[in-house]
Design a protein around this nucleic acid. Structure first.
Ligand SMILES: [Mn+2]
Ligand SMILES: [Mn+2]
Ligand SMILES: [Zn+2]
Ligand SMILES: [Zn+2]
Lengths: 148, 148
DNA sequence: TTTCGGTTGATAAAAATTATCGCGTTAGAT
DNA sequence: ATCTAACGCGATAATTTTTATCAACCGAAA
C-alpha cells in the first residue's frame, strides 16, 4: 500500500463505519491508518508503537480490540504465520505472500501465474478461496547471511 | 498418515537419529509416533495428552523441546496458522492443506493441478518452496452450521 | 565403577492475548 | 438543556502459550 493511497483507504474505512453504524473513533481511525500505511504486515505491538507516536494515550488492549473490529468489518485480515505474534493485513485485494525463511518478513506478491489458480478441493470440502505463499530468502537476508 | 505406515515412519525416525547422533529416547519416539499417527496437525497440548496415555510421566516442556528437535531433524514442520497454538505436521512430502474457516481443522490435500505450481518470485527474492492452502468449509462444518 | 554430556521433568518466567471494570463520551429521549 | 443509557477507551488483572532454568537422571565412554 503506497502511502498516497492510504488517505483514500482511510476515507473508505470511515464511510464503511458510518454505513455499518460502527463508530469511527479517533483510535480506530489511527489504528487503521497505521495498518493501511504499512507494508510489513505488522503485529499488534508494531501498530501500538506506531500509533502512540501521534496518540500517546493509546492502549494496547484497544489495538487488539480494534483489530478484531477491522477483521469483522472486512477491511483487514489476520495472516497465518509460524511466528509468535499475530500479523495483520489491510490489503483486501486478492494477492499472495513472500515469506522469508530467515527473518520472517512478509511481503505482498502478485503474479499472473497465480491469478488463475483453480479453486479446487475434494468432494466433501467447500472451497472459498486459496492463499499461496512463496517461502525463501528476502533481499536483505540474501545480502547478509546469518553471522556465523 | 494412515496408521499402518506409522510404524515404518517411526523406524525411519529411529534410524535417522542414529545417523545424526541424536539419542532416540523413549520420549522422543513416543512424541514422534503420536505426531506421525495423527492426521489432525496437532498442537503441543494435543500431543501431550496423547503421549501421556502411554507415558504418564511425560512433561509438556519435553513435548515442546522435542518438537523443536523434530523440526531441526527435518522430520516435522510447523504449520502456519491464525490460531492460538502451534501446530505440527510429520508429513514431509510435498503437499498442501485444506483449512476450515469455521472449526480451523487442517487436512492434507494433494491435487495434480497443484503439483506443478511454478516456483516464481520477484527478482530480489530467492524462492525455495511454495505452500498452498485452500480455505473453506470442512465436511463436518458443512453438515452442522453454527448453531444460530 | 566413575565421569561426563545430554535429556527429562518440575517449575519459574516470559510473552502474547483476552477479560474485566470504572470512567468518559456521546446519541437520543425527555 | 438535562438526563440517561449505551458503548468505547484505558488501565490492569487474568489467562494462555511458550520458553528458560535447573537439579536429578541416564547412558556411553574412559
Ligand atoms: Mn499482504
Ligand atoms: Mn499436512
Ligand atoms: Zn529475510
Ligand atoms: Zn470445520
Amino acid at each position: 500500500m503506497s502511502s498516497q493511497f492510504t488517505g483514500a483507504m482511510v476515507q473508505r474505512f470511515v464511510d464503511l463505519c458510518r454505513d455499518r453504524g460502527t463508530p469511527a473513533t479517533p483510535q480506530r481511525i489511527e489504528i487503521y491508518r497505521a495498518l493501511a500505511g504499512s507494508e510489513a504486515h505488522p503485529t499488534p505491538e508494531m501498530l501500538y508503537d506506531q500509533v502512540r507516536l501521534s496518540m500517546p494515550s493509546m492502549s494496547l488492549a484497544t489495538v487488539y480490540k480494534t483489530l478484531d473490529t477491522l477483521v469483522a468489518l472486512g477491511v483487514a485480515s489476520e495472516i497465518a504465520t509460524t511466528g509468535d505474534a499475530k500479523r495483520y493485513d489491510a490489503n483486501m485485494e486478492q494477492h499472495h505472500h513472500l515469506v522469508c525463511t530467515q527473518c520472517h518478513s512478509i511481503s505482498d506478491f502478485r503474479a499472473p501465474a497465480f491469478e488463475r489458480i483453480p479453486l479446487i478441493a475434494p468432494e466433501d470440502f467447500t472451497p472459498e478461496f486459496v492463499s499461496i505463499r512463496v517461502h525463501g530468502l528476502c533481499k536483505k537476508c540474501k545480502a547478509s547471511p546469518p553471522h556465523s
